[in-house]
Design a protein around this nucleic acid. Structure first.
Lengths: 228, 228, 228, 228
DNA sequence: TATGAATGAGGTTTCATTCAT
DNA sequence: AATGAATGAAACCTCATTCAT
């Protein structure tokens, strides 16, 4: 499942950590990431984290306020990386819809290649009030701002309808991305950024209502069942 | 926050329970609902539930396998109610898009009027593998099936584009609904079913691209499977 | 493992119960016996007993003072049966050593054919002070008395050495029986009454020392009391 | 009841523990031993153990897998000590029967001077399947092996009859020891190693039958294995 | 005779967290 | 920077038992 992209991601983050952080801290953060691949955060104990990291439990509390702070910091590091990459992604792209498409692709790709990140963001933090006071949440907001700005730019330059709230558009886009990825994340199935982006953009950009001059009929292929 | 609708819901469920369930069981379920209005499930203790219900903790385990089973059963009861209502909702409506709009409105309305239900479904259960083996999850699938059938019907009768996978459409629609409601649910703000439905349908039905000419037909392929 | 003997045992006891005891009581006692085939007494819950017996837990307390009383009564019923059988067994046998041999065979055979009885007596009750106040314990003492009388008779008639305390002899005999059977009982292996009796009598009657000349008479003093 | 021997035992064990184990662990083990003098294991709560040891209940679970593991470890420590003592005991003794007599004396003496050990071994563990997977059970087997080897040696050198299975002999000897000691252990009465050994050896070595002529040689077959 | 409903009391175990070193 | 030892607090859960009917 790990692609070149994800490996690059990992190693880049690690390089930064090597400079900024003492090795103990890094080992702890890496241990949590490893464990999150297999279990839900609440089911991971500090004892397990310490053992996996080959440090003592006490050390966790040297570097992190508490267990949840560790989670938020791990999430925050990922986010900072993805924010800077999103900013790079947009460079050299013409057209707001093209930019939006690129952002959607990157977003899906990041869920696809970094399941731990996806699980933290979509399943672990939203329940807990602390999260909304964390630095990580600030990063999330900065990240979301990027799409919002692109949408606003599209409205301003006439590429996007001006009779819809940009915020609602952003929510619907994100919702679509998340719900298309969620089954893959929960049940550990492959996620195909290319296909999902294509489908999502087709719908979001043009809607589902059949056109007066209708599209040509095509065979389609669906999912088994599902829901939620 | 409770509207007439939600009250009717509650009392209908209660009537059924009075017949089917011993009073202790009902008191426990109601106690959990009450507590969920204020706290996250993991932060609620069995002691609190028992105290709120004016029963002993032991009784919880007479009626429910464990604490999480209680959550799932509460969720399941809500779902059964909403499923039957969704089926009623569709009666007498002409047009698949009109039906879809109605379903979206009802869905948003149910998040709006029953925050406890919304929190359980969107924030509490998805993390935990047990959920996916629960009866509640089966109900969720039945509920989702309703929208899927409407979408399929729309494709068959030409109201909905046939070049998008119905499953993907369903996921995107649900994703849109959820993400439009999520801020309201998390931060306990008002949710306006009328406005959100309007905005969502406008976007989903017609897309965000400023119109010049109709979209060209494109090949598509849907989400792999799963759900949630 | 069940032999004709054990079946007859069971059915005889059951017939008595049918007369003496209401069906609910019998069902409960039988349920416990059934469960004891698979688990240790403390690991069996009253809920399980009730479910196995197809009665409610409350009924257990109609017929038995508490859970342990149930165990003691079950044990007591077995013991009464085995006592009367031991008395029959001795009739028509000449010679104290022959009688003793017969008792040992019956004893081993009863462990061999009734594992539940064996487990209760050897593993479940001895820990718990209540047992020593129970009727079952009185029966055990009556049962033990039978061997003691035979040993005393043997001493009196010169078949058995008179320089050993009869009580100690009884303890050593019983100890030998138990320890030969214990592995079979604990690990659920076959127990062969014929072979074990043969071996045990050979040793107990004649000793293990390779013979040169007969032992000299010695003064004795035995264990204080007790049994089991 | 504590003799010089038992005190030496205790302090020797304690010395070892002081080196090998953190003080908390030792305090917990000692607390259990203390409590076992007065109550049955199941009647002792972790709360009591902790309180007696002046530590928190949580610490018990740092050092022991669970409550029963604590029991097994305590038993195991005793056993290791007694094994090494049994090995010493045999040194300098000539004759297999003399060695066997010495082992029996030591065995009875250890039940006599260490009632806690006796109760654990004879009354507490045999019921519970976990025991048979514990290290303590492995120690028991090593301990039993010592007598078995002596018996075998006696057979080989002609001191002991060769027509009885050595395993059966060992079982009968152990059974005799246990049953002679059991009343004393259960009812907290004195146990006299000298007298009991004398009586037991007299019987086991020479049998109970009044002598006329030596026994004839017979074929033998023993218990399957096991012990305890 | 038998049950449905409920409970009291406490049991074991878990786990995040701290502090002296 | 890191650890070994220990803890506080409660969490979940179990189970024998009772009582009104």
């Amino acid at each position: 499942m790990k692609t070149v992209t994800s490996l690059r991601t990992e190693s880049t983050i690690r390089k930064k950590q090597r400079k900024l952080f003492p090795p103990g801290r890094t080992k702890i953060a890496e241990a949590l990431k490893l464990l999150l691949e297999e279990k839900e955060f609440n089911a991971i104990t500090t004892a397990e984290i310490a053992k996996t990291a080959c440090v003592t439990e006490a050390l966790i509390y040297k570097y992190f306020k508490d267990k949840r702070d560790l989670l938020h910091q791990v999430l925050g590091e990922y986010l900072e990386f993805y924010i800077s990459r999103a900013e790079m992604d947009l460079k050299g792209i013409k057209g707001s819809l093209n930019k939006l498409r690129k952002l959607m692709w990157s977003h899906i790709n990041m869920y696809s290649t970094n399941r731990v990140f996806a699980k933290i963001l979509l399943l672990e933090v939203r329940n807990y009030p602390d999260y909304f006071k964390s630095d990580a949440y600030e990063s999330v907001k900065r990240y979301s701002k990027i799409s919002l700005d692109v949408i606003q730019e599209g409205i301003d330059n006439g590429e996007i309808r001006n009779d819809l709230s940009p915020l609602s558009i952003r929510q619907i886009v994100l919702g679509g991305v998340e719900h298309l990825c969620l089954p893959g994340i929960i049940f550990n199935k492959e996620i195909s950024p290319d296909e999902l982006t294509e489908e999502l953009c087709e719908l979001i950009f043009h809607g589902i209502a059949a056109r007066k001059d209708p599209p040509k009929s095509r065979p389609k292929k669906g999912v088994e069942s599902g829901n939620n």
